[in-house]
Amino acid sequence: MTSSLTSVAPTATIRVRRRLTGSLGSPAWTDQHVFTGHRDGRNVYIAHPLTAATVADHRLVDGLGCLREAGVLQGQAEFEDAFVQIVRSCGSSPEDGWAAFYRNSLAALHNAESAFSPIHRRAREVIAGSSVLEVGSCFGLLALQLAVDGHAVTAVDVCPGAIDLLGQASAGLGIALQAVPGDARALPFGDDSFDTVTLIHLLEHLSSDSAQRSLVEAARVARRRVVVAVPYEDEPDAAFGHVQALTESDLLSWAKKYPGWRAAISEHHGGWLILDRR
């Protein structure tokens, strides 16, 4: 895959190293896994202490988030480039780094160490039927958990690099699922192809028009249920690629566009919309 998960090039050159001794810059994370770094014009230098035993999604998000707040990292592309480089540096090879990332991230979700643990748990609880399509799967951590739960899972994401990583991870972990590149606004599946279609923390990454098109597509390919989860934000978090701040009013507006479906709206670490065919 490329060095970044997005097609947008970082505005700075990111240089990452594991910190074995000494320090670089001021601490930007105050627990046992301190990320340090500084920005020198178009160069960003980051040192981290993560290893194959500790690299995990929540630690990367927290540590790099602090560097972003300190002004060391700017924008989504720089954040993602640093994310990828750190993972690749945590093993004896980039492949070993990613294998460790998946193994540790799934364990953290299972052990409720990750902020996403309650969101994934809720999503797993509301699946209807045996076949599931996860739209906007990114690394596919939810898709892998759903497959372990016994569902026939297909994961789709617009980023080919993320799909390649998920395919390699599922094979390495011995977890069967399908990983398919595709656009949420034009899903490459026929009508009524899956019992449940999930869009978990996806729609905030899309414009209003694209989000609504993605919902239409999800309803088209779902036989029984569509599950939507979004964060509630006052302002969209651009570092994570959010382009719109969503509220309960948005969920209510979306629900009204599907009169042939029963809609349930709730709040659990953000907003949830569940559509069921009447």
Rank of each mutant, 00 (worst) to 15 (best):
V228F: 09
P10Q: 01
A263S: 06
L252N: 14
H38V: 07
Q145T: 05
S214F: 07
E267L: 14
G241V: 10
A100V: 01
Y102H: 04
L5Y: 14
V87W: 05
T2C: 13
R213D: 14
S23D: 15
V197C: 11
A143I: 02
S93H: 07
H151L: 04
F194G: 00
R19G: 15
A184G: 10
L252E: 15
S7C: 14
I127Y: 04
R224G: 12
G136E: 00
E235I: 09
R213T: 11
R15Y: 14
T51Y: 03
D31R: 05
P259I: 06
R15T: 15
L5D: 05
A53R: 11
L141N: 00
L60H: 01
V61C: 13
T51L: 12
F240N: 06
S208F: 12
R224I: 11
C66T: 12
L173G: 03
F83P: 01
R213G: 07
V153M: 08
A56M: 04
Q212W: 13
S117A: 15
S253K: 11
L206S: 03
R225D: 06
S137L: 06
G97T: 01
L24M: 13
A9Y: 05
A123P: 04
H151M: 03
D183V: 07
D191E: 12
V221G: 02
T196I: 08
S105L: 09
L173M: 09
L166S: 04
Y258F: 15
S208Q: 13
P118L: 09
V61R: 04
V132C: 13
T6I: 15
A99W: 02
L50E: 00
C138M: 13
A176K: 10
I119F: 08
L165A: 10
A115F: 12
L273C: 09
L60N: 00
E69Q: 14
L273V: 06
T196W: 04
G41Q: 10
H120Y: 15
D276E: 15
R262G: 14
D191Y: 03
L20K: 07
L246M: 14
H38M: 11
A162M: 14
D276V: 08
G182N: 05
S193V: 00
E134T: 02
G91A: 06
L60V: 05
E217P: 06
R225L: 10
K257D: 14
V72L: 09
A9H: 08
R277C: 15
G65Y: 02
A179F: 03
H201G: 06
E95H: 11
T154E: 07
G75R: 00
E204F: 04
L142G: 01
A143N: 02
T36I: 10
T198D: 08
A56W: 00
V226G: 03
R124G: 12
W29A: 13
L144Y: 00
I86G: 03
V148Y: 05
F189P: 01
A115V: 13
R17P: 10
G260W: 05
